[in-house]
Design a protein around this nucleic acid. Structure first.
Length: 219
DNA sequence: TATAGCCACACACTTACGTCA
DNA sequence: CGTGACGTAAGTGTGTGGCTA
């Protein structure tokens, strides 16, 4: 506490003594209408000083108090309260910003979840195609990637990204190809074993993929 | 050099009052 | 006119840093 100034402030506008029952009356008198609120001119000057610097040097405080016809203690308190108001507004602003960021992230997360679900379904379909010899792909197909590619090509599965067909599975060929290229995997020379062994988790390896990679891919 | 006491200051929280819808 | 919400000047309690004996 600024003890010397405190005593000055207590004298501000008061007449009565400081005995307990009279203390309230004293305060009420001190806070009478004209003295309680600062004038517009006082506020204007205080605000302009605060804008330049939110803290006052002791000497400057005394000078300002003299200019405004206030006690130095009143100027100090005004700056304290002003800093508190500024801080609470700042907290509100920060909260709004954080909430907006959170909302954005949450909605992005939801759309990523949907994309993931759709990709998992595509993976299942691909696995069905690759893993079913009865549908024209013979048993040795698993050992021969180039042949698989040849056989799948007419179906518009693997090379659909080149043909740009609207096949249900193939329509995401571009995305899969892009994903693989992000993982530095050449899809054109991918063998069926590779398809099976391909570990999607490498796509989530932070050291290999920056957020911009993902942003570009998903957007 | 370490320590205790004092002082000035800032901050968080609270109170009391004025203003306005 | 009464009333509740809100803004604000000021009081209170506490922590901290500088100074000094």
């Amino acid at each position: 506490m600024e003890k010397t100034e405190c005593s000055e402030a207590q004298n501000f506008g008061s007449v009565t003594t400081s005995l307990e029952p009279q203390a309230t009356a004293k305060r009420k008198k001190a806070k009478s209408k004209n003295q309680r609120r600062f004038t517009d001119e006082q506020i204007r000057l205080l605000e302009s000083i605060f804008e330049a610097d939110s803290k006052l040097e002791p000497r400057r405080k005394v000078q300002v108090a003299r200019e405004l016809g206030l006690q130095p203690r009143q100027v100090a308190i005004w700056f304290q309260n002003r800093r508190a108001r500024w801080k609470s507004k700042q907290i509100e602003q920060d909260f709004r910003t954080l909430r907006a960021d959170y909302d954005n992230l949450a909605s992005r997360f939801e759309s990523l979840k949907e994309e993931k679900q759709s990709l998992l379904m595509q993976m299942e379909k691909l696995n069905e195609l690759v893993g079913k010899p009865s549908q024209g792909l013979e048993g040795n197909i698993m050992a021969d990637g180039s042949r698989l590619q040849e056989e799948l090509a007419p179906r518009g599965v693997i090379q659909s990204h080149k043909n740009n067909t609207s096949n249900d599975v193939g329509c995401h060929g571009d995305e899969i190809h892009e994903l693989l290229s992000m993982a530095h995997v050449d899809a054109s020379s991918l063998s069926p074993q590779d398809w099976h062994r391909f570990d999607p988790s490498i796509l989530f390896d932070q050291s290999r993929f920056t957020s911009s990679h993902w942003l570009n891919f998903w957007t």
